[in-house]
Nucleic acid binder design. Structure first.
Lengths: 354, 354
DNA sequence: AGTTAGCACTCGGCGGCCAAGAGTGCTAAA
DNA sequence: TTTAGCACTCTTGGCCGCCGAGTGCTAACT
């Protein structure tokens, strides 16, 4: 399709899209005549041709032109200028991540906030998730006579906590010994292996106490739950900024976007796809498989350590989105997060256990 | 003021408010005439008297009446029927909390979700916070050659995690020994005490290594940060439900409420106040000190263990809020959460260290 | 004195109408 | 191939008048 367009026609298309993204109003032939050095009539002819090609439309006869999904797609793929972040912006972002580098669970908050601000739309981030979680460490801490706090650390660095009932007279030393034993038994094991361990009492000396079995079962359950639910957690930010866009003039739109962000829409179709692909994904309006996304565009990228742990960052906005800027922002943030995770996991490789 | 109102006048006020809460449209004298057994003219006279008393208004001459802030206040304090949750609802809620009783950090999510659903507005919940955090336990786990994951457990059960740089050749056994030593040194100490510990190298044998000092400093900093920032985390839910209310017909309202929930408005004035008071607080429209809250009502309650750890649950909604139902819901959820926390902390009392 | 029927009056909301303006499509000339 | 000119289309905003809802007041009734 791109071969059919001569240079001037491309220029017209590009100008229409850029101006429409900028002003949110259909662009008239007059608007482009001066900057292109031709008359408005000529521009109209070109526009009509672009409309025949399916790249532009208009809402009614006497209205200016605006891009179709195909128009945006062509723009994103062939026309747009890369809008790299300024070095100053890059430094600021780097600096913010550097400041919280040690607090892993704040990464996604920061990423969403920064992305929402630089791309000027709603941002979504899922926490990093290992392809298969592995047990790293467990700790048992007496809370009171009857309760024990179990802190479970997984290989990719996530920490889960849970309380367990305990025998009234268990001391902290006993708990530490039990934790030590379980740490050895479960060393580097996957959820499946640990589940098996809890079921088939292993030939261990001395045999496992009922409390030890309980702990192992809890570990297995927590790891399973984690694997199942971790990427159901989508953090988002920047909704407020996006509401300033004119497409959110009526509340039904707001409800729509809220239920996309907080309902399961993103998870069910977009996130898995982004996890499975390389590079930055751009999905425009009607290209979505889901009807409720028809009026929105989404830009997503995987981040993380190759073949190890990964999550997704991206933005959601109206079809009329600042694609160049948004794409650059998503790419950049994904890069920064990947680098950070590389520092954490880089030196180590998970090798298959069997 | 409540003495001036005779029985029938109270009935009229109550009926007006209940119907207005229900329908969101000003109520006409005709609407009440039948149910009160008098003519509409009589009702009009009563309404005019209630308007003189400042409890009702109307938007223009030919419109029905609606309550003023003072009217709502009088209703909440003298007129409304307590709307206890049905035993079935109570059982459902209890059950849901029971299912996640072991996962402390999910409490606030569940509380917000349940509250939003039962009260049918936006719910806000802050995590529990101890009046003064105390050190409980620390664990150091090798992540890779150069990084250590520090897991810090505070007395009230919250868990903080952080990565630290380490000497390249530190083994897990060494780390465990260091953790053990720090656990003894910091036992039950407050942030202040630990900060002092890091500064004034204590007379310890053998003297603290530079890594040990780093860990202690990190613990102190994490505890301080926690104390300062913990109730800056407000979780909210139910925004989407609330947007169905007719007062959110225009997007500016939505923006308003979003910036109340996500900006600092709640934290700065409402949360501290709720933490400092007993029972359920109801603040109606213009009673708020903050201008941006003028069109909203807030119902808040502290929850937690007496004198130990506490957080806040509550709802935010339009002035025209289902007060009876919302108040009961907030009270009930606060009770459930307090009970749960009692199970965790009840058996133990924090005694002052000096 | 309290209650009620009756009635005039007020005000918002809605639909219809018109004029203005924006922008196109087409035609014919350069 | 480009462009000037012009008729045509469609939206937008303002204005007008009607209708209905609901009140406030007065006078009659109990």
């Amino acid at each position: 399709m791109n071969l059919e367009l001569n240079e001037r026609r491309r220029r017209v298309l590009k100008a229409v899209i850029q101006q429409y993204i900028d002003t949110a109003t259909p662009v008239a032939s007059q608007d482009l005549a001066r900057s292109l050095g031709v008359s408005s009539a000529t521009v109209r002819n070109e526009m009509a041709a672009l409309e025949d090609a399916g790249l532009l439309t208009h809402l009614h006869t006497s209205a200016g032109r605006l891009p179709t999904d195909a128009g945006y797609r062509f723009f994103v793929e062939n026309l747009m200028d890369r809008a790299a972040l300024s070095t100053q912006e890059q430094r600021m972002i780097q600096h913010q991540f550097y400041q919280i580098r040690s607090e892993l669970n704040q990464w996604i908050h920061l990423a969403a906030a920064v992305l929402a601000r630089t791309a000027q739309t709603a941002a979504v981030v899922t926490p990093p998730r290992a392809y298969e979680s592995r047990f790293k460490h467990i700790e048992l801490i007496a809370i009171n006579d009857a309760l024990v706090l179990m802190v479970l650390v997984l290989h990719e660095g996530s920490v889960k906590q849970q309380t367990l009932p305990a025998d009234p007279n268990t001391t902290q030393e006993q708990l530490s010994r039990i934790a030590g034993r379980i740490n050895e038994l479960c060393h580097e094991a996957s959820a499946r292996v640990i589940t098996a361990l809890a079921l088939t009492q292993p030939v261990a000396q001395p045999p496992l106490s009922s409390f030890e079995v309980l702990v192992i079962e809890s570990v297995a359950r927590a790891m399973q739950q984690f694997e199942e639910h971790v990427n159901e957690l989508i953090h988002h930010d920047g909704l407020l900024e996006m509401l300033h866009q004119p497409e959110f003039g009526q509340v039904t739109r707001v409800r729509e976007v809220l239920s996309i962000l907080e309902g399961g829409t993103m998870l069910e179709s977009l996130i898995p796809q982004a996890l499975a692909s390389d590079g930055v994904q751009v999905i425009i309006g009607g290209e979505h498989s889901r009807d409720e996304l028809r009026d929105y565009s989404v830009i997503l990228s995987r981040y993380g350590v190759n073949g190890d742990v990964a999550g997704v960052v991206g933005v959601l906005g109206p079809r009329r989105m600042a694609y160049p800027r948004s794409i650059s922002s998503v790419r950049y943030i994904a890069g920064v997060m990947s680098d950070l995770m590389g520092d954490l996991y880089g030196e180590r490789k998970i090798e298959p256990t069997e």
